[in-house]
Amino acid sequence: MNTRPLLEVEDLRVSFPGTTGEVEAVRGIGFSLGREKLGLVGESGSGKTMTGRAILGLVPPPGRVTARRLAFEGRDILGLDAAGLRRLRGARIAMVLQDPKYALNPVMTVGRQIAEAHRAHGRASGREAERKALELLSAVRLRDPERVARAYPHQLSGGMGQRVMIAMMLAPEPALLIADEPTSALDVTVRTQVLAILDELVTARGMGLLFISHDLNLVASFCDRVMVMYAGRILETCRADALSQAQHPYTRGLLASLPRLDRPAETLPVLARDPRWLDDARADA
């Protein structure tokens, strides 16, 4: 068994030119990801989405990505040219976004899109790709895969669309999946179903998952480990099931500000931000 991490990140930085100099969205973070569910939590603007995009080489211009090391399966990603990145992206590393509406082609049936994703990265024949598409649709537990395959994206509900997108991303059997708020737009019961699919891929197929979310409780219950991001840095990393005992005052403050069913309160504690947190960064995860 290969024990080398799937993804190694050291001193990753993402910056954008601003009117008053460079603005760093990600300010030197490091972590490694194995065949596990690794959560990345933070509030809006914390840099979590840019981290996911940087790994895939999807930071929009004029954004600039630098890192001491950004390696996937031991190979440097930053040094890859466009063709090399394309071979990696989709085939070995895939990404699931929050809103399937923007990721699916509105004028192509779902079945054709998945088949196309499969063919783009393999050498399957048309018929084989179609069969594979149906197989993937049933793998994401869509009740009537044949009907869904014939449907256009606008004919699907949010939860179905999200499952279709996951099916499409999984077509080339990636080793690493980056999921950016994959369930935020979904109802809780559908969320449970989508998470179960991701869970099975990690436990049964040994896929690595970077799960980007703003939802602390969800990450605590779903992931193996959690990284807490604030203002472009990782403040702390801990075991997901131990998130409630997190050490950093930011993490503690966030957790405290959540209303909880098991803890009635007249008023909710409001997070008081300490400027020193901007310079806090834990040792690499």
Binding site: V188, T189, T192, Q193, D199, L218, A220, S221
Partner: peptide
């Protein structure tokens, strides 16, 4: 609804 809201639970997913 209560169970699904509480977070992810592998068994709850099976029983939906």
């Amino acid at each position: 609804l209560l169970r699904a809201s509480a977070g992810y639970d592998r068994d709850a997913a099976r029983d939906l």
